[in-house]
Nucleic acid binder design. Structure first.
Lengths: 210, 210, 210, 210
DNA sequence: TATGAATGAGGCTTCATTCAT
DNA sequence: AATGAATGAAGCCTCATTCAT
């Protein structure tokens, strides 16, 4: 095996380990909450030493951000896959569904974002995160505008529709995760159905001021 | 002045101090975030010693919970005031408005609830909180059912309507507070208007599956 | 005992503890070198908990600086005591002697100053330190100028004389402390005598350009 | 090319690399201070791997010592070059000048020597360093004795003169490097002139007790 | 020989809570 | 009841050194 090959494999393994660390971190954060998870716990779960984590990431905050970026990139990937769809409603629905699909993960990132921004940590990565997100939102804006041209959607600035959907999704997530409100809803699936139907038609033309 | 009177006044002052502590704590939590606020900072703001705080509350978690209960009681008070209203829409609207009116406070309590439940802290108080909330929700349920009887609202279980409104409000709050999404919306007031209109008619009859 | 008295005594004890911590820190720094001394070691020597140290000082760097300031204040005290002396040579001699008298302490502070400045730590205290020192130097400058008026000293800017004396003292200290150079000098006392005589007459008139 | 030649070249390259490492280390130590420089930084500057450094040197302390030895050997080289000089004052002057010429380097080594000796690190190298230094001092002693025979210098043990000069040089270096004292002296060049003149005539006959 | 990923001891600092006065 | 000094567990991060490839 040539030296180049070897180097490539090493780099590969390094990336792999990075992924392992992030996976372990995410799993622990979800299980126990970020505040209860120490860097050492992450290392233990991966089966490596504490110091090794710091070969891959500068700070714990960086881990937070990288996870958030990964999430946002998954979303971007989703958009890429469905952007060809003729049905303009699909994108909005998929967006909605993606957000709701893993509520704990979503909520974790919401908390993390607030924390990380309050700490003014790793500003470059925050910027990167926001750049990706802006791209994603631009996709949505285009879709929304198409639907407004169709005459389907009420003609307010596109961000309004997106933000409203975002808010409903965000709230739905919090609802499904809230230990208290969970018991308030008996048939989760049916309710979600109801909620999605609201989300989709929300802002449809001719409904305002009714 | 008799001993009884004296004792009564003392008890009075003790209550007063308790309120001061909670007020100071809330103000600080809102200004800086719970994690950045130490018990000592709260004591300093009230102008008392740190130890004194522990004469009133067993732990910091108890402070969290008492604040949350106060919030929920404020909501109960609101319901009491408007429950006589003939216009059944009013209650829903006020509920919505109350939640949105002080988003940071609301978000704070949302965070605190998750934290406190994860810690399984002061379970008696958690129970008390949930009891009050259940009462509040029962009020809403009654209203919703009345509107469904009217034929105004789509006939799904009442909690669905409430939960949907809750979710939208929750999301709206997060949206308005998010440093990122804030810049995404140009005219905040106009957007909120849009959002409230959605919130009110959301779930109105005849819209589903449209 | 009145409350005021009690409070005063408490404050007194607090100060006393502060002094104990600084004394212990200084002793340890001298014995083992600053880098080998941990905050915990200092606490152990005083017989208190690690956290207590941080009730008195914000950081380890602050301890460094407070010790340095104490040293500089001792010097100021010395100047106050001898400033009345008619013999203008006395001040210079005492200054010299003070610096040489405890070489390890002096060297410690020299090291600390470099470290603390490189770290840009606790700038307010650095400023305070320098302010005191500037006062002390001003004392010396006045003395030197008097001697130049006498015609005793060569008429160059006063700081030159001071700086030269400072340099010789600084070097003498390093010499006496150097494990290597120590064995190079047999009769320490006699040599110091020689050095002091140089220090005193150094810069006397009529010697330059000989 | 024969195997022997190859081996020789390899050895040559190995030596060369060693020199590069030491050069890089010295440069970094001077720029940032020993404590802020990690082995990895040295490796990076040379453009090699961190592990390679440990093929050349057992510990970081060894690097320190090797640098100090190099410095002392430079001094020995200087003595060799000027030892033939008829003017006996020259050696003393050159010695003085050499020390003052690169104050940061000098101070670095002073710090390192204290550190390394406190750590009792690599005693063989410490011994070697001191052996070279002893040779250098012996050179100086011979010169001084010649000048005392001349009647130029006061007749005290030769090491006295050397030590005094060493001390003054050492102090001058510290002075010029001290961020604080620097601003105390306006005209650096003029002051150094003054200092050197003192250094040269320091201990000249007939001045003591004047 | 060269590499650089991995290690883990060790340092500094924070803060909720306790307790003697 | 009020105080605030004292505590120490716990967390984050650094870096010289090792070792498998």
């Amino acid at each position: 095996m040539g030296d180049l090959e070897k180097a490539a494999r090493k780099a590969q393994e390094f990336r792999q380990r990075e992924r392992e660390i992030l996976d372990a971190a995410l799993a622990l954060f979800l299980e126990q909450g970020e505040d209860r998870v120490t860097v050492e716990m992450i290392a233990d779960r991966v089966g490596i030493g504490k110091g090794t984590i710091y070969k891959h990431f500068e700070t714990k905050n960086e881990i937070y951000l990288l996870l958030m970026i990964r999430y946002e990139e998954d979303l971007a990937e989703l958009f890429r896959q469905i952007s060809g769809s003729e049905d303009k409603e699909t994108i909005a629905r998929e967006y909605f569904r993606f957000r709701i699909s893993d509520p704990r993960r979503y909520q974790l990132f919401d908390r993390l974002e607030n924390k990380v921004i309050k700490d003014q940590a790793v500003p470059e990565l925050v910027e990167k995160l926001h750049a990706i997100r802006s791209d994603n939102l631009a996709s949505l804006v285009r879709t929304m505008e198409a639907r407004m041209d169709d005459g389907t959607l009420e003609n307010v600035p596109a961000p309004y529709h997106i933000a409203a959907a975002w808010a409903l999704a965000h709230g739905a997530v919090a609802l499904m995760e809230s230990p208290y409100y969970q018991k308030f809803i008996d048939d989760k699936a049916d309710f979600l159905d109801f909620l999605v139907s609201i989300g989709i038609r929300m802002g449809n033309k001719g409904q305002r001021g009714k």
